[in-house]
Design a protein around this nucleic acid. Structure first.
Length: 888
DNA sequence: TGGTTCACG
DNA sequence: ACGTACGTGAACCAG
C-alpha cells in the first residue's frame, strides 16, 4: 500500500466554508465560521483517509504573472469580505498550533504550488489527495492524484472524488483536455474569458473531437456548429490566453521534502487552547487527553468541613470589601456550599451532619441581609428546601436585592450565548479557561461519591463561587456601561423570584382525563393508520418524512412542491395543496395532527405529573435572544389551542379545589408597542379608537370605508400587520398569503404609505443596528446582530428582519415581565390565596381562589395595563373558567 | 447529532 | 442570482 498525502488548497476551502456556514462568532466577536468549516472538512478527510502526510497551501498575495494577466482582463480581483479576511490569519495560526505544515511560496499561486507538489509526490510513489473547492484543479487528476471537492450539499458536506476516469465520466474529457475545455468555455469566477458563446456542451464536443484548442483552430473548417466555429475564429487569441490562464503549473522551482508534511501532533495543548478560545465545542472531544491548564488559582482553593472552620469563614466574610461569591452545589440534594470571600480565595464547604443545609442556608441568608453577594443560576438554587425561605418568608426584600445573579447579567450582556455557567463567565469576563462540569465529570450527574475523594470536585465547586465573585464587579460595570443596570435590577433580578414561585407552584393536571384523552387519540391513530396503508397499498412509517416522500412523490407520483436538504418536503403547507390530488393526503395530515397530540402532549405531559398532581415546568430566563422567557420540561407555552381537537387538552389543566382559573391576555401587545415606538399618528389613533385594528388597517390600506371591508381584506391586513412585526419581506408575506411577491410588495407599500412613521422607524432600527451592532428595546435590553454586516445577502437580510423584530418582541417581553413581577408581588403582599402560575408570552394564568375572583381580576387588569405607559392603551382581556379550556 | 415537522406566542 | 417571514421546545427519524 502506497503512503498517502493529503494536500489542501487553503484559501479555496476556507472560502467555501465561509459561504457554507452562516454567521458564527465566538463571544469575543471574532468571526469563526470559515475556520470551523475548514476544520470540519479537514477532519472529515483525515478520518476517512488516515493519510501519512498532510500539508495546506496558501497564496501569498504578491502579484504573479497569472494575476497580472487576469487583472488586465477583468480589473481588480473580487475583494474578500472582511469577516473572511480576518479569519485567514486565525486559520493559519490554528494550523500551526496543530503542527500542520503550511506552504506559502511567495511568487507562486497556491494552485501552482499544489500542482507542483502533487506531481512531485506522484513521481515519488505516493498516493495524493488534493482537496479544493476549485474545479480548476481537475486538470491535475491522474491515477494517483485524486482531486477531492467538498460540496456543501443539503444534509452535510459530501466530497466529490475525481481520478482520471471520474473526470472523463463527468466532463467527457481527460484531465489534460480539461485545460483546453476551460480555455474555450471560460470561467467567470476565475475571470477566464474563454470564447464567447461557447458553453460547456459545445466546448466538450470540440475538445472531444480535436483534443486541443490549437488543433481545433488548425482544423477550423471542421469545427461545428458554425456559430462556435466563427466564435473560435474570431477569439482564437483570447482562447489561447484563456488556456494559459487556466493552466496550473506542475513544475514550479520549489523545494519540497516529504518530511515537511509529517503531522503527528494535531491534538496538542496549544491547539486545544485555540479551539476553546474559538469555542469549537463540537471539536473539543477530539482531544483525548484532558488538557486542562492550571490557571494558578486552584492553589487558593480549599475544602473544609468542620463547624469551626465554617464559622471562621463566615466571620471573616462580614469584613470583606468586595462582593463575595456563593454557590450551593447540589444535584437533588445539597452536597455543599462553594464560597469565595474575595477574588483570591475560595472554599468548598462540604455538607454533613453538623454542617447541615439549613445551617448553611441560614448563614448565607444572614450575610445577604447585610451585604451584596454574587452567585450563578440563582433560581435553580432556590429550589433547595433549605433555601426557598429566601423567597417565601416575609421581610426578605433586602436579602433579595443583595443577591446578584451573574448568569442573568451575562445573559443581558450577550443574550446570544447558549450557556452562562461558571466556565463561560470565567472565559468572557476573566479571560480564564477553566474546565467545565462536563470536562471534569463527563455527562455524569454530581453525586455524593464525588465529594468524598476528588480534588477535582473541590476545584469544580470553588471555580463557581470564585468566578461569580471575581466577575461580579466587572459585570456590574459592563451593565452600567451598556445602560442595562436598571433593566437588570428592576426587571430581571426580581423576575428570578417570580419565576421561582411559578415553578414551585406548578399547574394541576387531571391525570385520569389526560389518560382518557390519550386513549381517544390512539383509537384515531390506529384507524387512520390502517386506512392510509390501504389507500397507498403498503405499510410504511408515516412519521418518516423520507419514507413518506417516497410514497407520495415517487409511488403516487404526486407533484412535489419543494425539496429540502434531505429529500422532498412533506410539510403541512405543501400537503395542504395536495389535498385535492389524493384522498390519502387529508388522512396523513390528520394522522400527523393526532400523533403529535398523542406523543408530545398526551404522553409527553403525563410523565411530568408529580405526586401533588401538578406539573412543575421550568421557566428559562436566559435562552431567548429577544428577552422572552421560555418554558421547558415540559413546554407549557405551546399547549394546543388553534385546532379544536388539540384545544380539548386544555380541559385537563384544572385549578385546585375551591379555585378557578383567570386568564389575562394582552390584546395585540406587539402592534401597540410598534404604534408607540414608531410614533405613527395614524396607527396610534387607530388604537385609541379601540376598534378592530386589522379592519382599520384594511380600511386605510385599501381605501375602503370601515364597514365595507371584506373579510379577505381584513385577513390580508392582518397578515401584513404580522409581517411588519416579523421584519417584513415581500417574499415572506407572499408565501404566507399564497400570493405573488409582487402583490405582496404592493400591500407592503400601501401599508407604508398609510403608516409612514412605521416605515421610518423600521428603517432607523436597521440603520442603527448596522452602526451599533445591536438593537435595543424600550427598556434598554440589547440584542446584538452580527449578521447585519454580513457580506452574504441571506444572512444580512435575516439580520435586517431581526433588527426590526427584536425591539418590538423584546419590548413586549419587558412589559409582561414587569406585569408578572407586580402581579405576583401584589397577590403575595395582600396575602391573597390566588397565585400566578403560568406566562405564555402575552398571557398570564392565575389560579384564583373563588372568594378573590373580582379582586384578582381587577389587579390583573390594573397591573398589566399599567406595566408600561405607552402612547396607546394596553388592553387586557380577563377570562375565567373551571379549566384552561374554558378560561381562554 | 442534525434535520424535519409542528405545537404555541 | 441569491431564496426567507420573528421567537421558542419537543418528538421523531436517520446516519
Amino acid at each position: 500500500m502506497d503512503k498517502k498525502i493529503v494536500l489542501i488548497d487553503g484559501h479555496s476551502i476556507l472560502n467555501r466554508a465561509f459561504y457554507a456556514i452562516p454567521v458564527l462568532t465566538n463571544s469575543e466577536g471574532i468571526p469563526t465560521n470559515a475556520v470551523l468549516g475548514f476544520l470540519n472538512i479537514m477532519f472529515k478527510i483525515l478520518d476517512e483517509e488516515k493519510p501519512d502526510f498532510l500539508t495546506v497551501a496558501f497564496d501569498v498575495h504578491q502579484p504573479t504573472f497569472r494575476h497580472e494577466m487576469y487583472e488586465a482582463y477583468k480589473g481588480t480581483r473580487k475583494s474578500m469580505p472582511d469577516e473572511l479576511r480576518q479569519q485567514v490569519p486565525i486559520m493559519k495560526e490554528v494550523l500551526r498550533a496543530m503542527d500542520i505544515t503550511i506552504m506559502e511560496k511567495p511568487g507562486f499561486e497556491a494552485d501552482d504550488v499544489l500542482g507542483t507538489i502533487a506531481t512531485i509526490c506522484e513521481k515519488d510513489g505516493y498516493e495524493v489527495s488534493l482537496v479544493s473547492g476549485d474545479r480548476d484543479l481537475l486538470q491535475l487528476a491522474s491515477e494517483k492524484i485524486k482531486i477531492r471537492i467538498p460540496k456543501t450539499k443539503k444534509g452535510g458536506t459530501e466530497i466529490e472524488n475525481y481520478n482520471t476516469k471520474d473526470v472523463i465520466e463527468a466532463y467527457g474529457v481527460t484531465p489534460l483536455q480539461f485545460i483546453d475545455l476551460k480555455g474555450l468555455m471560460g470561467d467567470a469566477s476565475d475571470n477566464i474569458p474563454g470564447v464567447p458563446g461557447v458553453g460547456e456542451k459545445t466546448a466538450g464536443k470540440i475538445i472531444g473531437t480535436f483534443d486541443t484548442i490549437e488543433n481545433a483552430y488548425n482544423h477550423i473548417e471542421e469545427v461545428t456548429p458554425p456559430k462556435a466555429r466563427e466564435a473560435l475564429r474570431n477569439n482564437y487569441e483570447q482562447a489561447i490566453l484563456s488556456k494559459v490562464l487556466a493552466t496550473i503549473k506542475v513544475d514550479c522551482p520549489l523545494e519540497f521534502e516529504i518530511q515537511e508534511a509529517v503531522f503527528d501532533n494535531i491534538y496538542n495543548e496549544n491547539a486545544y487552547g485555540y479551539f476553546k478560545r474559538l469555542e469549537f465545542k463540537s471539536l473539543l472531544n477530539r482531544f483525548q487527553v484532558q488538557l486542562t491548564q492550571n490557571t494558578g488559582i486552584e492553589e487558593a482553593f480549599q475544602s473544609v468541613e468542620t463547624l469551626e472552620e465554617v464559622e471562621e469563614i463566615f466571620n471573616g466574610l462580614e469584613k470583606v470589601n468586595g462582593i463575595p461569591g456563593f454557590v450551593f452545589i447540589h444535584e437533588e440534594e445539597l452536597l455543599g456550599l462553594s464560597i469565595a470571600p474575595s477574588n483570591e480565595k475560595a472554599y468548598f464547604i462540604k455538607a454533613g451532619e453538623k454542617v447541615t443545609d439549613t445551617y448553611l442556608a441560614g448563614k448565607v441568608k444572614d450575610l445577604a441581609q447585610k451585604k451584596q453577594l454574587a452567585t450563578l443560576n440563582l433560581k435553580q438554587q432556590l429550589h433547595l428546601p433549605a433555601l426557598n425561605t429566601i423567597v417565601s418568608e416575609g421581610n426578605c426584600e433586602k436579602l433579595q436585592e443583595n443577591i446578584f445573579d451573574a448568569s442573568i447579567a451575562a445573559y443581558l450582556l450577550n443574550p446570544l450565548s447558549d450557556s452562562y455557567g461558571y466556565d463561560d463567565i470565567a472565559k468572557d469576563y476573566l479571560g480564564l479557561t477553566i474546565p467545565s462540569q462536563s470536562e471534569l465529570f463527563g455527562k455524569n450527574k454530581l453525586s455524593v461519591s464525588m465529594v468524598e475523594k476528588q480534588e477535582e470536585f473541590t476545584h469544580f465547586c470553588c471555580y463557581q463561587a470564585f468566578s461569580a465573585c471575581k466577575a461580579a464587579p466587572l459585570i456590574i460595570e459592563a451593565l452600567q456601561a451598556a445602560d442595562m443596570y436598571k433593566l437588570f435590577y428592576e426587571i430581571e433580578m426580581p423576575l428570578v423570584y417570580t419565576l421561582y414561585d411559578m415553578e414551585n407552584r406548578g399547574i394541576r393536571v387531571n391525570r385520569q382525563e389526560l389518560k382518557e384523552y390519550g386513549d381517544k387519540l390512539l383509537v384515531s391513530i390506529n384507524s387512520l393508520e390502517t386506512e392510509i396503508y390501504k389507500l397507498v397499498g403498503e405499510e410504511f412509517n408515516i412519521n418518516s418524512p423520507k419514507q413518506l416522500g417516497v410514497i407520495l412523490f415517487e409511488k403516487l407520483r404526486l407533484p412535489f412542491g419543494k425539496k429540502t436538504k434531505t429529500g422532498y418536503s412533506t410539510s403541512a403547507d405543501i400537503l395542504e395543496k395536495l389535498v385535492p390530488e389524493h384522498p390519502v393526503i387529508r388522512m396523513i395530515l390528520d394522522y400527523r395532527q393526532v400523533t403529535k397530540l398523542k406523543s408530545t402532549y398526551a404522553d409527553g405531559l403525563a410523565v411530568y405529573i408529580g405526586d401533588d398532581e401538578r406539573i412543575h415546568g421550568k421557566f428559562q430566563q436566559t435562552i431567548a435572544a429577544t428577552g422572552r422567557i421560555s418554558s421547558t420540561e415540559p413546554n407549557l407555552q405551546n399547549i394546543p389551542i388553534k385546532m379544536e381537537l388539540g384545544r380539548e387538552i386544555r380541559k385537563v389543566f384544572i385549578p385546585r379545589e375551591d379555585y378557578i382559573f383567570l386568564d389575562a391576555d394582552y390584546s395585540q401587545i406587539e402592534l401597540r408597542v410598534l404604534a408607540h415606538m414608531s410614533g405613527d399618528e395614524r396607527l396610534i389613533d387607530a388604537y385609541r379608537e379601540a376598534q378592530d385594528i386589522h379592519r382599520i388597517t384594511a380600511s386605510q390600506v385599501f381605501h375602503t370605508p370601515l364597514n365595507e371591508v371584506t373579510s379577505l381584506q381584513r385577513s390580508n391586513a392582518k397578515a401584513v400587520n404580522f409581517g411588519i412585526v416579523y421584519g417584513i419581506s415581500s417574499f415572506g408575506l407572499g408565501q404566507d398569503l399564497n400570493i405573488s411577491k409582487k402583490e405582496a410588495e404592493s400591500y407592503i407599500n400601501k401599508y407604508f404609505e398609510t403608516y409612514p412613521r412605521v416605515k421610518n422607524f423600521l428603517d432607523e432600527l436597521v440603520a442603527n443596528g448596522k452602526g451599533e451592532g445591536y438593537v435595543s428595546t424600550m427598556f434598554g435590553r440589547r440584542r446584538p446582530i452580527p449578521e447585519l454586516n454580513s457580506s452574504n445577502f441571506m444572512q444580512r437580510s435575516f439580520g435586517e428582519r431581526v433588527a426590526m423584530n427584536s425591539p418590538i418582541q423584546g419590548t413586549a417581553a419587558d412589559i409582561i415581565k414587569i406585569a408578572m413581577i407586580r402581579v405576583n408581588e401584589k397577590l403575595k403582599g395582600l396575602k391573597l390565596k390566588s397565585r400566578l402560575i403560568l406566562q405564555i408570552h402575552d398571557e398570564l394564568l392565575i389560579e384564583a381562589h373563588k372568594d378573590e375572583i373580582e379582586q384578582v381580576s381587577h389587579i390583573l387588569e390594573e397591573e398589566m395595563q399599567n406595566a408600561a405607559k405607552l402612547r396607546v392603551p394596553l388592553e387586557v382581556e380577563v377570562k375565567s373558567g373551571s379549566n384552561w379550556y374554558e378560561a381562554k
